[in-house]
Design a protein around this nucleic acid. Structure first.
Length: 208
DNA sequence: AAAACGGGGGC
DNA sequence: GCCCCAGTTTT
């Protein structure tokens, strides 16, 4: 598959499945992204709303005790870990970064509970900085469509960065997640609804 | 490289 | 009941 073919399909995926996010506050994006780890959107949303209704900013969260927010964030799962990390992150942001979330990959990666995927989501959504956050959806779909041939998400991030122009880095995450949730499912993809099945390596070989 | 964290929804 | 989910950290 040529580079221009890949870019063309990527642009179509974005056109069909990208939607903008209304939340632009980097701190709220950071916290809700931590809550979203290994968690469905619906549960993440409930947990975020619960949390921010009582602790609306970095100052109030930095003063909270983990036990106080267990019940608020419980719908997102792994609530003990997440509670401690969220409060620790808030303290660090407040004390070390003067209350402002850093817009720098290396600084974000130092925060507890923040790995490569979470950090890149914050960079793109919170700061409009081009970043590819390779989650299971992006990894799976990139391989199925033949954009890359990789074993790990890290390799996918690297290869995808080489192939796609920077302007697509942010939007392709969001678009592939929506595409993956609705059509290109992990186990039983709805290929009959997929606009790319004709040129899809996975669909035409039936091997993952 | 594998385990552990974890509630909720789909089947 | 079993499997999976915008992962990260610890063993």
């Amino acid at each position: 598959m040529t580079r221009s073919q890949i870019v063309s399909i990527a642009e179509k995926i974005i056109e069909m499945f990208y939607h903008d996010f209304d939340e632009k506050d980097p701190f709220k994006i950071l916290i809700s992204t931590i809550l979203s780890q290994r968690t469905r959107d619906e549960n993440t949303l409930v947990a975020s709303q619960n949390l921010f209704s009582k602790y609306p900013n970095v100052e109030s969260l930095a003063k909270a005790k983990p036990e106080e927010i267990y019940d608020l964030i419980k719908p997102s799962g792994m609530y003990r870990q997440k509670a401690e990390r969220i409060i620790e992150v808030s303290k660090i942001i407040l004390e070390k970064y003067n209350g402002k979330v850093p817009s720098d990959l290396d600084e974000l990666l130092k925060l507890p509970g923040v790995g490569r995927k979470t950090a890149n989501i914050v960079l793109f959504q919170g700061f409009s900085i081009p970043a590819i956050a390779v989650d299971t959806h992006v990894h799976r779909i990139s391989n199925r469509l033949g954009f890359v041939k990789t074993k790990t998400p890290e390799q996918t991030e690297e290869e995808l960065s080489k192939v796609l122009p920077k302007r697509l880095w942010g939007p392709i995450n969001v678009a592939m997640v929506n595409f993956g949730r609705n059509i290109c499912l992990p186990r039983n993809p709805r290929c009959e609804k997929c606009p790319f099945s004709k040129e899809c390596k996975y669909h035409n070989s039936a091997v993952d």
